[in-house]
Design a protein around this nucleic acid. Sequence first.
RNA 1: CGGGGUGUAGCGCAGUUGGUUAGCGCGCGUGGUUUGGGACCACGAGGCCGGCAGUUCGAGUCUGCCCACCCCGACCA
Length: 566
Amino acid sequence: MSHLLGRTLRQAPAEAETASHKLLLRAGLVRQLAAGIYSYLPLGYRVVRKIERIMQEEMDAIGGQQVELPVLHPAELWKETGRWFDVGQEMVRLKDRADRDFVLGMTHEEVITDLARREVRSYRQLPFMAYQIQTKVRDEPRPRGGLVRLREFLMKDGYSFHADPQDLDAYYPLMYQAYLNIFSRSGLKVVPVEADPGMMGGTGSHEFVMLSPTGEDTFMLCQGCGYAANLERAEFVKPAPVLPPSDEPAELVATPGAKTIDDLVNLFGLPAGAMLKTVVYAEGERLVAAVIRGDLAVNEAKLARALHTAHFHLATDEELRAHGVYPGYVSPVGLEGVHILVDDSIREDTEYIAGANRPDAHLRHTRLGRDFQADEVADIAAAREGDPCPRCGGTLHAERGIEAGHTFKLGTKYSAAMGATYLGADGQERPIIMGCYGIGVDRLIASVVEQSHDERGIMWPKSIAPFQVQLVALGMDDAALAAYAENVYQELSAAGYEVLFDDRDDTPGVKFNDADLIGTPLRLTVSQRTMSAAQVELKPRTAKQFSLVPRGELVQRVAEALAAAP
RNA sequence: CGGGGUGUAGCGCAGUUGGUUAGCGCGCGUGGUUUGGGACCACGAGGCCGGCAGUUCGAGUCUGCCCACCCCGACCA
């Protein structure tokens, strides 16, 4: 340890805020090079390799074949699937000396699909699953949280190829279970949740989430039935109508200055659920009016799915006026030239107070189907803390979390676009059915530290700890003691244990504190005291007390203690 | 990209209304004393005060522009 690259820090650099970021820096596992770009020092890289090993074992166990794919991709490949145009500045683009466009691999669907179309001819070659554990590059708009969100990151990506959707459906649960295995073997507690496929496309996906207040995503969980979903797609039971339907015709009411739902609540003395909220978005040249109950909020991720595009924004006042729409008094009633998208919370068996599409006035007795029509009905409402669970009617709770892994059923999105086909037994050519499965290795490490630490430092699960044992030798300037410690080190190493030997000439306090900070599962201490009694002190990182073990029983006792360690 | 914050030694920080040679703690080096929970004494090394341009007799300090990093948002496998 006296020559180990990377010293421990007493104080964390000021830029680190989260526990994992501070501890990974302090314990000497990583160092930052630039925003979202880190080097792994020897201690950190050992953890990376442990996790890679677990991933390899679990992927191989379900028939995975590891490959190594290029970092530099010709733009043509990404043009074939359209992502060259769809993905924004997040993709790092560059030119070679001949002025040809290239990108740095931010993910590898294009490359693996290209490989598949070159190699696969027949259904007889299917199914198979290939995976890689490699660096990916994304110019994130905002790297954050140390290793949680990086611009250059290590990712395990798996891609499966199937003859038909049924085969993918049959394989998917194996991958799902392998993912649970990887996380539990890495000592990380995760919750699988329904997720939004986002830019990956496809027909279904799950996220594997480590719940933590430092997480950057919000998830809705039901304790009753275990329903769990990303807020971006979480469903909930929409509230029952507030007002009985009336046969009164829509009636204009003067509402000077009342521009918000709150104003209307005060003015009419009715709950917000009786109001119609109309939020107008601009999508290119056209306007979209999102109509929703006054007590609900539009979820823009759901809206994006309903509109089949993410390229929209809240309409500005200028854009509204250009279409003759009055901010604060917008209403689907009599709204011309605007696409009307109605949330399924809006029902025909009730009436609402809506805007009048003119200043300082609203309409009451407004009814869907009579006074206004929906061009489209969809679920575009954001779930909130306390909303009823869509499965069991229980109560949904909002929790923050870190997305540690994600599995997708891709279907033919890439294979069809790129012509990755096979000949079936019937002689017909069909696109290959694909799935893809990713885990962020760096983020997994950050999540484990976030979950397993105390005020003194990291508490590594033994499966991914950089070393299994930290040997603290006190009084290394004494030759006899140095020899005693060296002997312990040699014996444990020979027995197959990974031992970090703290041979530094430092005070006990320094060494104990560093051992707690680095957080190996077991700490052994040798000193004049233990040497003269022919003992070694043994303390698990998670234990409060140490025990003294006879020198002769050391290997056996280490084995026992390690078996008992988390 | 919008909002906020921070840049002074490896790390954490101080630096008065602009005024000698820019400080403190930790860490680092040498010597000595220490040795079971971040020891003590002495001596020492280490700075383009983020960068550029101004204002001024004089700038770490004032002004402008830029850069980097962090946080919130937008965005995001």
